[in-house]
Each structure stands twice: as structure tokens, then as C-alpha cells.
Simulated scan of single mutants.
Amino acid sequence: MSKARTVLPTYVDAPSVYIGGEWTPSTIVKNVRNSTGVHRIDIEVEKHIASQYKRPGQYIKVQGVERPVLLAIASPPDERNVLSFLVKDTPYHKYLLDLPAESSIDLSIPMGRGFQIQEALNTHNDDQQIKHIVLMACGSGLAPIAAVIESGCLQLSPTNSQEVMDIKKSPDRTITLYIGARTRAHLPFAERYAEWEKKGVKVVPVLSRTEGRYVQEALQAELLEAPENTLALLCGMKGMTDAATELLLAAGVPKSRILLNF
């Protein structure tokens, strides 16, 4: 793995130790624009980092200019040594977005509990098995949701993931992804939607600029059947997740089945 470092003039090295462990030099292998306002960055990591990624929804810290940047992992936890990320194009992320392939950056190990899917399932009886799965994300917040879809934890297709959560297959289960963005050009991972649809995920783009609505409003317009049998995974801006949580609770979805990755 190359350790050559490309440093922007504004980059300031942070301390060599972060709270919880040491930084590990890692190598960017791809940094490309995935959609308007969002980059896809693939980073080659050491084995001990890959092995600590066990559950979709976990994140890593990237050594930043003033403080570490937190990025949710977009690829599934299968011990691959290249992790993918969706990074929003903001001044805060500029130094990272400007780094070309072969640049070296420092990462933490994967952190956080991720989506506690198994735990949510184990809190209910068999007559309350999951029949409906609602996935909600905005912009680069799609990253951990993509990891869920592609990890196999929803048992959409065979997988070699480290941890396959026990969601029993059901012929009448529905899975709907509400993905919010300004316009279609802003939709991240749009090239994957057709494949996700083939796996059984209904993808519903919600476009705030061209349609004038947001994902929580799209959810409100849908009539949830059997809310007690619904599992919801949310990732995005706090305003969206708070509003969606309120709507789901009001509809009758158990609080323990409304999951956030952070």
C-alpha cells in the first residue's frame, strides 16, 4: 500500500493519536464525483481496520484540518480492504475532495454501533415479524443505507458478509427506500437503483427543488400498513430524522424499530 502523502497548502496535521486509538495511514484509490454535490471516495485500508467493520451504519474518523471528519461507510462489511464513502461537497470537506488517487490520509478504526437491526427484531414476538421495511436517507446520508442494502442483512440476495442479521424471508415483505435530493442530478448512487429494484427494494426519489417536497412528506403521503410490523432505518439531517421519527411513532411504529446509525 502506498504511503506517499499529498498535502494541500491549507492542511494542518492533527495529533498522531485520537481519543480511542491511533491514526492509521490509508490510501485513496478513487475520488470521483458521483452526483451533483457528492463525491465517491474509495480508500484502501489496513486489515485491522477492515476487520473492525462489522455492521452497516458504522463510521470512521478521517484526520481533518481543524478536527476529525466523520464519514459513514457506504460499502458492506465483508472484510474487503477498500472502503467506500459518499462525501458531500462542502468547504468543510474541501481538502478531502481535492486529494487525488494515491494520496495518503489517516483513518481511525470503524466506530459506532451501526444499525441495531438484530436487536430490534429480538424485542418482539413472532406475531410481530417484520413485514415492511422503510429506508430513508437524504443526499450523502444514503451511504450507510447503501451498506445495508448491499450487505445482505435484509436477505435480498446471497452474501458473504461477516454478520448476516436474522430477518426471516417473507414473500409479502415490502422494502421501500425514500431518497431525498434537490434534483435527479443530485441523487447519489443513482447508477445502482435499477439493481436494488431487482433485489426487491422499491426506490422512491424525493426531489425538493423540482417537486417541492421532502422525504418525510413522501412518507406522510404513504399509508403504512401494519405499523407494528414495520422496521425503519433513517439517515440524514436531524430535521428529517426527527420529523420522520415523529411521523412513524404517530403511525404506530414501535420506537425500538426506528433505527439511526449514530
Rank of each mutant, 00 (worst) to 15 (best):
M1C: 07
S2A: 08
S2N: 15
V7H: 08
L8Y: 08
L8M: 11
P9W: 04
P9S: 05
Y11P: 03
Y11S: 10
D13H: 13
A14W: 09
S16L: 12
I19N: 12
S26W: 00
I28K: 06
K30E: 14
N31Q: 11
R33I: 15
T36N: 13
R40Y: 02
E44L: 09
E44P: 03
E46S: 14
K47I: 12
I49F: 07
A50W: 08
Q52Y: 03
K54H: 12
R55C: 10
G57T: 01
Q58F: 01
Y59H: 14
V65L: 11
E66D: 13
L71P: 08
L71T: 10
A74Y: 04
E79D: 14
R80M: 11
L83N: 01
S84L: 03
D89A: 14
T90S: 13
P91V: 12
Y92S: 15
H93L: 06
H93C: 11
K94Q: 15
K94M: 13
K94C: 09
P100M: 09
A101W: 03
S103K: 12
I105N: 02
L107H: 04
S108Q: 11
P110Q: 06
M111E: 07
G112T: 09
R113D: 13
R113S: 15
Q116A: 15
I117V: 12
E119V: 11
N122C: 06
K131Y: 00
H132C: 00
L135F: 02
L135E: 01
G139L: 05
G139D: 05
S140W: 04
S140V: 10
G141I: 05
L142N: 04
P144E: 06
V148H: 00
S151K: 04
G152E: 03
S157V: 10
E163Q: 14
M165N: 06
I167H: 02
P171C: 04
D172Q: 08
T174E: 03
T174S: 08
T176V: 09
T176D: 03
I179W: 10
T183H: 05
H186I: 02
F189H: 12
A190W: 03
E191P: 04
A194T: 05
E195K: 14
E197M: 05
K198G: 04
K199W: 12
V201R: 00
V203M: 01
V204H: 05
P205G: 11
P205F: 13
L207Y: 03
T210A: 08
Y214G: 10
Q216A: 07
E217A: 06
L219I: 10
Q220S: 15
L223T: 15
L224Q: 06
A226L: 11
N229I: 00
N229E: 00
L234Q: 01
D242E: 14
D242L: 15
L248M: 06
K255A: 15
